[in-house]
Simulated assay, not measured.
Amino acid sequence: MTKRETFEILKLIGDYYGQFTVDQQKIDAWNEALKTYSFQQIKQNLVCYVTQSPAPPKISDLVKQNPAGGHTAPGAHQTLDLEWEPAVEQDIREELQRLRKILGIRKD
């Protein structure tokens, strides 16, 4: 993305959100972060974003959207360790004993 395209994105944000101000420092900072992205994709993400949020977007809001326009949520493979092995019975007993001791529970 060129600096001119970055300015166009920021100007659009200002058009959508009146409180959003554009100055040279903001253009330079945003351009540094967005220079490897496609103008068309960022613009498309902006249009999707403004239909869903009353607040101006951050850079991360514009680069992390999926084609459907929503934010991308991590899948189970990204949040869970799906290759776990069940605990052995001895480990379970030891952990329960440790918890009972911490909680002051006596096993009679």
Rank of each mutant, 00 (worst) to 15 (best):
S38D: 12
G69H: 02
K35L: 14
R93P: 00
D108A: 14
G75C: 01
S38H: 04
N31T: 08
F20M: 08
G69T: 12
H71S: 13
I105Y: 09
K26R: 14
I92A: 07
K11Q: 13
I9D: 10
E5N: 11
R93T: 01
L80E: 07
E95C: 02
V63K: 03
E85F: 08
Y17S: 07
L103S: 05
I92H: 01
K26T: 06
F7C: 00
K64C: 12
A33N: 05
V47C: 04
K64P: 04
T72R: 15
T72Y: 14
W84A: 12
G14L: 01
Q24H: 13
A68F: 03
V88M: 10
Q44C: 02
L12M: 10
G18M: 01
V47M: 10
K101F: 10
K101I: 03
K43M: 13
F39A: 03
R98F: 07
A33M: 06
P86S: 03
G14M: 05
S38C: 08
N31P: 05
D23T: 04
Y16F: 15
G14P: 07
L82Y: 05
L82R: 11
G104F: 13
M1G: 15
E8K: 10
R93I: 03
G104Y: 04
P74G: 01
R93D: 12
Q19V: 06
Q90A: 13
A87V: 04
R93M: 03
D61N: 13
T79R: 09
V63L: 05
K35F: 00
Q52D: 03
F20D: 13
V88E: 11
E85R: 12
Q90Y: 00
E32V: 00
P74E: 06
L34F: 11
R4T: 14
E85N: 03
T2R: 00
Y17M: 05
Q24P: 04
I59M: 02
E95I: 07
E94T: 00
Q19M: 10
A55H: 12
H77V: 04
L12F: 05
N45T: 04
L99F: 05
F20G: 09
G18Q: 14
V50M: 13
L82N: 08
D108Y: 11
D108K: 10
A76F: 07
D81Q: 12
V50K: 14
D28R: 13
E94C: 11
P74F: 03
H77S: 10
L10S: 05
T79E: 07
S38E: 03
Q41D: 09
L96P: 02
Q90L: 09
